[in-house]
């Protein structure tokens, strides 16, 4: 059975998990990966990957500036703000 290092993966995802959550996910995701395992036996030699189902590539437009939100509407949902900027806890001591 494939093993997910839940602690390491959660760290990559910047996601705090409780001990109970880690145990729950560890068991469940092990079973789900086992189910995914069927993919590994499929012969895909000479096959190109599909990233999306759309025939479009490199959609370009004229590089013209258009009006956007001002600071007010853009910051209206910020948990904390000051002087038209998002306020966060101190990063550098």
């Amino acid at each position: 059975m494939e093993h997910i290092d839940i602690g390491y993966t959660a760290k990559l995802a910047r996601l705090e998990l409780s001990k109970d959550e880690q145990e729950l996910y560890s068991a469940q995701l092990g079973r789900i990966l086992e189910y995914f395992h069927v993919l590994s036996s499929v012969d895909t030699s000479g096959v190109e990957p599909t990233a999306h189902a759309n025939p479009l590539h490199n959609v370009l437009r004229e590089d013209v500036a258009v009006p956007g939100f001002g600071a007010g509407p853009a910051l209206a949902n910020a948990p904390q703000q000051r002087e038209d900027q998002v306020l966060v806890p101190r990063v550098i001591e």
Binding site: L39, S40, V42, T44, V47, E48, P49, T50
Partner: peptide
Amino acid sequence: DAYYLKAQLVRTLIR
């Protein structure tokens, strides 16, 4: 490669 890329390859087969 084992999961994500493989799934994209199988996605082509399904298509």
